[in-house]
Design a protein around this nucleic acid. Structure first.
Lengths: 327, 327
DNA sequence: CTGTTAGCGCATTCAG
DNA sequence: CTGAATGCGCTAACAG
């Protein structure tokens, strides 16, 4: 392996001079520069970034934590990596499988100086446990949390969900079921408020048994389909907190012999690829921008030059799973 | 930041002793060990991994290169990360967007000592360009290539595809269209051979216009649906090289007013989540095992202790898009 | 069993 | 404009 010293020797200069031409810091005469460049070329020299990292104290890499693979992750990840690359950051992935220890290990990589910052897509530990790690480096997430120390690129799920419900109402649906995420999640709470306000506005009763909590997300809505199937009095529409779960719900109901949307209308959330493929009406809230903002926060904490945040937006995407109600 | 020296000072020993208790190499008396452990605790010391990496010359991280996000990537990635973690490796992701320069940059990270090895899921450059980088570290891929220097965890696409075609034949289909990947890809060539042999065996004519090459993969089969729609004489079945393209094909045909499988039967490949959701009959060839084998190769190149490879298998998954042909 | 010494490869003072 | 010296934090070889 050729090092800076080999280059220096070959170019007949000191290694500091070589270092200067590589980094571009400091003055170097044309002549010296030329000699160094030639020597580098001749020796096929390439810098050892570990050494540079040790010196600078940073690795230019950001950890991306998620429990595992689920649908919106793809879009988020791709946008995140893309913007990170633009600003010369790398992204390393940690799947925790919901294991708290694994998550802590990943968080600790900041302490060990392996990671400059961390993005949490889906967490395993409670925020109280995670928060203290922010002393080792910036942490951001797309979940809605109230914290001074963790950035949240959340969108307004209250109004987003209300948008879905109003749309169902306009199209003639009155008995609406809800599939929400983990009850402790603030996004879920925002949706719960939307449900309450929606029911009050339209004088609809709140049916507790029509609210489902999909805690695991693992079976992608299949179990929810079973529960719906066993419902004595079925809803004529179902609103979901995420497309992949809506997709699994539809898929399973079809297996059980139902037709969608004839037997039940479905509205998703995320506008992910699966919703496009399965013609599911959904809500787009720009995961891309969220990913970018999450990165921007981390970047701005780490660097002097600041990037400005992207604007968020929410949009309803009409497809085929919410026709006008004929019943 | 507290370093090994602070700990040594506090514990009243030399830094080598501290290093010994951390790494577990060499002998340390109970007494010294105890003092060191206490000091570490008291100072909340944690090792700087960059320094360790500089010393060892490796980073324990593997680059995962892909053009961008597409369906089977999720399963592959998850399995890959999972096994990598088991052997204490990290995975950093590089999306090339099909840009050759970006891919080279990523490959160069091995030269810069930032990456110990590289997995290529989908490439941008030709293999001839990629191969020389193997001098900097092990490279593996799931594509089928003939190379001494790049490992290929491919499965036998010839027999896998023949399996699909025989299944279609058994179920009564005689006019079969094919959607294949890039024509230069060896997997594609294997499938072409399967088509030829299949046609010969059953005395079916080879219809060139029924063979489609999906070069981009970007629109997920939508354009193929258009082409099929414009076919003067339509096939009664379509076989695909990957599920996501089959899914897009179905989705687009539905938009055009067709019914699947009534108007055309569809068989996919990969057994990915999307095929399960959309009830697409497909072939499972254990992406998980491929991911594991890809990692195992890299690991074995890098380490003394060898892990043994996983066995591969191919299995047909019957779902709803290939009913018995009634026509 | 332990301390001293010498690097790993590079960047950055500080003189000159 | 350039070289010598120092250090980033840790590991490993070598004496003792």
């Amino acid at each position: 392996m050729t090092t800076i010293i080999d280059v220096a020797r070959k170019a007949q200069v000191s290694k500091s001079t070589v270092s200067r031409v590589i980094s571009g810091n400091g003055y170097v005469s044309q002549e010296s520069r030329k000699k160094v460049l030639e020597a580098m070329e001749a020796l096929a020299y390439s810098p050892n970034l570990i050494a540079r990292n040790l010196q600078s104290g940073e690795t230019k890499t950001i950890g991306f934590l998620a429990q595992g693979f689920f649908d919106p992750l793809g879009v988020f990840l791709q946008s995140f990596i893309s913007i990170a690359k633009t600003y010369n950051y790398y992204v390393t992935l940690y799947f925790t499988d919901g294991d708290k220890k694994k998550e802590i290990e990943a968080l600790n990589q900041m302490k060990y100086k392996q990671l400059d910052g961390v993005l949490i897509l889906t967490r395993a530990n409670s925020w109280d446990v995670i928060e203290p790690y922010s002393i080792y480096g910036p942490i951001s997430t797309w979940h809605r949390i109230d914290s001074e120390r963790i950035y949240s690129s959340y969108v307004d799920h209250y109004s987003g969900y209300l948008r879905s419900l109003d749309y169902l109402f306009q199209r003639g649906y009155r008995s609406i079921g809800h599939v929400l995420g983990n009850a402790e999640n603030l996004n879920t709470k925002a949706r719960m408020r939307a449900i309450t306000d929606f029911n009050n506005k339209h004088q609809l009763p709140l049916e507790e048994k029509w609210i489902f909590h999909d805690k695991t997300r693992l079976d992608n809505g299949r179990s929810i389909a079973q529960l719906w199937h066993e419902l004595p009095q079925k809803t004529d529409a179902m609103a979901f907190y995420t497309d992949s779960v809506a997709a699994g719900f539809i898929s399973e109901l079809q297996t059980l012999g139902y037709s969608i949307p004839e037997d039940v209308a479905v509205i998703g959330f995320d506008n992910s690829e699966i919703s496009r493929l399965m013609h599911i009406t959904t809500v787009d809230y720009s995961i891309k921008h969220q990913a970018e903002n999450s990165f921007i926060y981390i970047h701005n904490q780490l660097n002097q030059e600041k990037i400005s945040e992207r604007k968020m937006s929410v949009e309803l995407i009409e497809r085929k799973t919410v026709p006008i109600n004929q019943k």
